[in-house]
Nucleic acid binder design. Structure first.
Lengths: 377, 377
DNA sequence: GCTCAATAATTTCCTTCGTCAAGTATTGAT
DNA sequence: ATCAATACTTGACGAAGGAAATTATTGAGC
């Protein structure tokens, strides 16, 4: 919702979104890109410029054959408005302030001593206060990312295992606590949205993001829209079974990707009392063949799961990232090998990015969802 | 494309589609359903009635509390136009004529002695002629279903293994051969479209259809749209691996659903020289425990694959059907068991229909695609 | 039977959005 | 200086759909 309180016309929304996600671009190019007349683009851009959200860049160097008036591309004024994003985990709040382009401007975090909703709200209020500082006058939106079953439309957290929340009206409560307009989203979906609008998913009609950590999660964009599942379940790549005779999973089945490649599963498969996950990483790096084989098997299982995504929905690209872990060197070749083996035909053409997840990326995802709320509501 | 050559306004398209797929429905109910004003529905319906595609039904019995003018629901005039659908297999053409509601009015087939494109076109021309009969004056569209890699938008068959076609401009050629407006679609996608518009997928935002036969295929509807895959691959449930140590698959991997549950794989797993698939079915039905176990394992693998679909995209329902085979009694309980074991959380709420595929259903799918082309172009 | 409330459908008027076509702006080439 | 090429702007117009008033058709209450 823009400051004037008016809803944007469809064309204006399209123009703003395209400039936001596809960088500076001339009106004529926008018109082609969006199947609009250039007149429509001019008209749609005017109020956005007047409100300070867009600006005209200085004419660029010539691109075409020679003659012609130079284009004055439209660009986002990234500092027109700021957004707070907070990821709520079971023991920590991680917060960032980003600009309109989802670039992080500042960040902060604080430990949670209790996960009751009231305690969390108090801490959240303080964290937001600390973060805002000089950004306050130009900040109206707060995005929250929570793991578990979240209803984005209503802002309800139906169930969050780590926080032990059931049916919490988080949006309403957080709006009261902070005075900001709040959006709530599942953490993996938030990350996926961030990647769709501001990362490697830009322009892709279909796209998947896989997170590797304690659990294995997946956010899915199909037809430009986030897949939510008719019963609230989607992207559960962690519980695809890749080995009927594999280890038992907490879900009751066997050989799930998560039961082979989740952090706990790896510790268990290493099977040396007292050895933690990060110690296992160190052992594998130092050349311990048995431990290395555990990571190899895990990476292969992840690759198989990703191939299942590619075979079923055929996204144009898949990003694999992880929860602050740094074991990518151990996983990567095996993820690629498992994927290549299991991807069918042209599904193997799907480009695979495997990279660590920068600190505060989850919170940035939350901010990205609140940026999207500016346009899509 | 309707006879007047004009494209329908968005609202008119929505009205026609809703009446077509959701049966007789009053203008007011349509307006609510489509988020339109009732004035808009009245205006959109008028030309459709004038062209003979819709009609007003006699006022129905009262539904509400008592008073009020009775509704005159809008209904499709199913016999306003007829559609030919033909499934092209490696050794047969199966053809039907359907009405606007995709009800089969007549059917015919003929064996193919050669799969060269010219031979097929000749046979196709004759089959269409035979089918049309008295339907000819009110028939303008022909839908073709072909297995393999088909570009629906251009009507090109990029590759069809059973027919051994490469880059055949099937639409253009078939239009020349028959004089009808032709649409071409992959066979599984055509079947999925038919189910989405005229079967169990009506009204579902997401929906999957799984075909079991020589291969294991899957058509996917997400967000109301057929999933095609950025690289042309989607719905390849047959090559999801459910058992790392399972039998080798022709795709180069091991333990693919198709390598366990495809018809060839079952014959191979039975492992008795000379025993065909239908003989294996008979043996299992007569109580042969070893052969029964083969079907059990196959059904379980299919169930696992279906669970992967449910876990990843969370469709509201899944229909499992097969290529004219009648071994459902052998598969069904094991498909359900594998699905229930492997479906994660609420994904298990996804309703599962398992049923045989009536004769000529593939051809009906082709006709359904050509009905859709009436509206969506 | 008459009147009234309730619901369905239609009509009329009007707003909004985006296109069309013409005009303005700004450049390089001749 | 003129012209072609390209980017952008402007104002008139048309199509689509909404709001509100009107008409249509029923059952209920008297």
């Amino acid at each position: 919702m823009f400051p004037d309180g008016e809803a944007l016309a469809p064309a204006a929304t399209a123009v703003f979104t395209a400039v936001l996600t596809e960088g500076p671009i001339s009106r004529v190019a926008l018109a082609r890109r969006l199947n609009l007349s250039s007149a429509a683009v001019t008209k749609a851009a005017r109020p956005l410029i007047a409100m300070g959200y867009l600006e005209e860049q200085a004419a660029t160097e010539r691109t075409g054959p020679g003659a012609g008036r130079p284009a004055s591309p439209l660009a986002i004024r990234a500092d027109r408005e700021f957004f707070v994003g907070v990821k709520i985990t079971g023991d920590e709040l991680i917060g960032v302030v980003t600009d309109l382009r989802a670039e992080v401007r500042t960040s902060a975090h604080r430990r949670l001593t209790a996960t009751g909703i009231d305690d969390v709200l108090t801490q959240l209020g303080e964290l937001v206060n600390e973060l805002l500082g000089s950004f306050r006058p130009r900040t109206r939106h707060l995005g929250l990312a929570v793991s578990g079953d979240v209803d984005h439309a209503t802002g309800f957290v139906r169930y969050s295992p780590f926080l032990r929340w059931h049916d919490v009206a988080l949006r309403e409560l957080a709006e009261k606590a902070t005075g900001l307009t709040v959006t709530v989203e599942n953490d993996v979906k938030a990350l996926t949205t961030a990647e769709q609008w501001f990362g490697e998913g830009v322009g892709a009609d279909s796209f998947a993001l896989v997170t590797v950590g304690a659990g294995i999660g997946c956010g899915l964009i199909v037809g430009g829209r986030l897949v939510s599942g008719a019963h609230g379940v989607a992207g559960e790549i962690g519980h695809i079974s890749v080995d009927t005779n594999g280890p038992a999973c907490h879900c009751g089945s066997r050989g799930c990707v998560e039961a082979i490649a989740g952090a706990d599963a790896i510790v268990r498969a290493v099977g040396r009392p007292g050895v933690t996950f990060s110690q296992a990483v160190a052992l594998a790096r130092s050349g311990d063949a048995a431990v290395g084989a555990v990571f190899a098997r895990a990476g292969d299982a992840i690759g198989s799961g990703i191939a299942a995504v590619a075979n079923l929905v055929g996204p144009s690209r898949i990003v694999v990232s992880g929860e602050g872990l740094s074991a990518y060197d151990l996983f990567e070749p095996h993820i690629r090998a498992g994927f290549q083996r299991q991807a069918f035909g042209a599904a193997a053409d799907c480009s695979l990015s495997i990279r660590p997840l920068p600190f505060e990326e989850w919170a940035r995802g939350a901010a990205a969802v609140s940026i999207k709320a500016l346009v899509a509501s």
